[in-house]
Design a protein around this nucleic acid. Structure first.
Lengths: 149, 149
DNA sequence: CAGAATCCGCATGGATACTG
DNA sequence: CAGTATCCATGCGGATTCTG
């Protein structure tokens, strides 16, 4: 598990890899710097499974195996990793019931619910425009095939 | 030559057809199926570089090397791949000026601009809550360290 | 049931060299 | 300048096994 080096918000510090000398000021603080905290958070949100998990958790409380069954294609390992990351970020609350067999339940925190609103709009956009995207892809593929021929 | 349309190497190729129309617009139908088109699009949008590129392109028209310089940490290869994907999806328009040396400019399409609105809100959320997330992480790490000890 | 731990295949993506 | 092509290291993530 990677140790996220955390600095105060706004302070940029290189996590891993070479630092190199930066120096110029960036008009848009959030974007370019890969050591920028906002980018780290975006990377977390914009990962393969997080969006799915958050969207599901918004509906109700889920048990681990329920999520596993519901999310098609996720491995047990990745579900665990994803849930831990979201829990660490304060987006998901994990509740262990001391019973046998174990019963662990997951739900969104208040913070997680605010994020869900945004995610919801992203999903909505995708739903609304999937036709246009499919058309654009088909168009692109045809044109590229023509060039290649 | 790698193609972006690669599915995850899982076994779940239920309906490998392009599924042009699922018919239903159920708000909560998008999630589970990994063959769902919405999920494929989300995977594209939610990748490491796409968000960054789209956000930059909304500002103005950019040349290739400008983007390369601006996006810290991206390799020339990944910038090319990302731009091609976005172009294929109809989100980015690529204009080649037949001059020497070559001049290629990138900008958002109308479709891309509609997505930018959503992305902008995602970035805003991140900016707004990065403090809370940092605190949650610190809290989590402390507690985990305590357990481990 | 929920997960931790382990092994490891292979896609992801960086570095380099070459081209129009 | 704006790519393409190639090689190759890294690590993501799947499969499996073991535990409380």
């Amino acid at each position: 598990m990677e140790e996220g080096t955390l600095k105060s918000p706004g302070h940029c510090e290189v996590t891993t890899g070479q630092a190199d000398e930066y120096g110029d000021t960036d008009p848009y603080q959030w974007d370019a710097r890969e050591d920028c905290e906002v980018r780290q958070i975006l990377d977390r949100v914009a990962d393969k499974w997080s969006l799915l998990v958050i969207a599901l958790l918004d509906r109700r409380v889920w048990r681990f195996s329920e999520l596993r069954r519901e999310i098609d294609g996720i491995s047990q390992r990745m579900l665990t990793v994803t849930l831990r990351q979201l829990e660490r970020d304060g987006l998901v609350k994990r509740t262990v019931h001391p019973v046998v067999p174990p019963r662990v339940e997951y739900e969104l925190t208040a913070l997680g619910r605010t994020l869900h609103t945004t995610i919801r709009s992203l999903v909505s956009w995708t739903e609304h425009h999937q036709g246009e995207i499919a058309a654009a892809r088909a168009d692109y593929d045809v044109r590229e095939a023509a060039v290649r021929a």
